[in-house]
Design a protein around this nucleic acid. Structure first.
Lengths: 207, 207
DNA sequence: TCATACGGGAACGTACGGTTCCGTTCTATT
DNA sequence: AATAGAACGGAACCGTACGTTCCCGTATGA
């Protein structure tokens, strides 16, 4: 397999990588920026995706699947519950799926499949959260939604290049992690935790 | 004082409040949205500010001054250093100046006065940080820039109406605060803290 | 009564970005 | 060697959105 076919297959990946990078940096970026970053013309994009919305849906879906993978991996760990949970959080930050799945929310109509995967992600996140709380490692006044919002905050850090950003995110994740662990007896958190509905509302295109 | 003069004076405030609310919710909002929110025409805006940029500069400047006020107030407190610092953080979150000063950064050319106030804000923030560290209340591996970035993260929370958002921000501030206090012996934070230059870079219009 | 400051909102010009379209190149088949 | 056609580059098209200007009505204060 060589020549045109190979080039096309390579472009498939090239375009996805470029799109991920561009939209992660700027969710409102024009489609031309993706083409330029990928080093291809606009036609190469429209041959693969019928519209910008379709591309965003694809990216979002991939991100969700990546999120699910990471969470499943963490759930499979049998060792210390706290270490598994802390590693899970680091894994999500490294995967950097929140920047795409959440920040793109509301800019396109969610697919049926997207809803399905989101529901599965929710189940998995709840599972690992419950396990860690029941092991007595995670302070019980912190809910799953709290964790989700916390990860969003960390994803909101964007400073310098990609490497530096990752470094800073891990720095603040470490700080947050110190607050999440159970041993030190802290005061109850003020205000009710975020509800599922509150988090979900952002997916409506009106948001 | 009544009639046209009073109406004009009232509009002054009306427009500023509307602009603050609109641009806090959406930094890229059109100027027409501000006029609508204020219940006035577009002319009323352009009579007071020669351009959108001028309005943004005004808002940003006001936010900075508010930030300075809050910090000065906290520095004036003589009691427990930790309580003063914690109250200071809550004050900044309540004032919600970060959403405007930071998120608008790069969308207009900073004024000379803006630079001056920013420098003063930096001095004050450094002072209260140093005082709290020297009192042994704030963990010493957390820098001023860390605090700044932390406050930005909290400002990035935006969920539901204004009231709910404030509530959630305080919830996560409490969580972060638990991690900042010195008593529990935590591990050193990974990665170098954010540098001043990194934070300042966002103010250039190219950002 | 009248000059005028104030303000409402339509209209203008421009920039931007998603999508389409046409000409070109390279491959595979005859 | 010739050619049909897939893949592509990129210019052109078109609708939209927004900052700014302009014209006119209104009510105020002299």
């Amino acid at each position: 397999m060589s020549g045109r076919k190979a080039q096309a297959a390579r472009n498939d990946e090239l375009i996805l990588q470029a799109a991920r990078a561009v939209f992660t940096a700027d969710p409102g970026a024009p489609i031309a920026a993706v083409a330029e970053k990928a080093g291809v013309g606009i036609s190469a994009l429209y041959r693969r995706y019928p519209s910008k919305e379709a591309l965003l849906q694809k990216l979002c879906g991939d991100g969700l699947k990546r999120y699910i993978e990471v969470t499943e991996l963490a759930l499979a760990e049998e060792g210390d519950a706290w270490e598994a949970f802390a590693g899970y959080l680091r894994g999500i930050v490294d995967a950097d799926t929140n920047s795409l799945t959440i920040r793109l929310a509301g800019t396109f109509r969610p697919t049926e499949e997207l809803y399905h995967d989101a529901a599965r992600a929710d189940v998995l996140a709840t599972a690992i959260h419950r396990r860690t709380v029941e092991a007595g490692a995670l302070r019980p006044d912190v809910t799953v939604a709290d964790i989700a919002l916390l990860l969003e905050q960390i994803a909101s850090i964007k400073l310098g290049d990609e490497k530096r950003t990752a470094q800073l995110r891990h720095r603040f994740l470490a700080l947050a992690t110190d607050a999440l662990r159970v041993p030190p007896g802290h005061r109850e958190l003020p205000g009710p935790p975020p509800e599922d509905g509150e988090l979900a509302a952002r997916w409506s295109p009106a948001g």
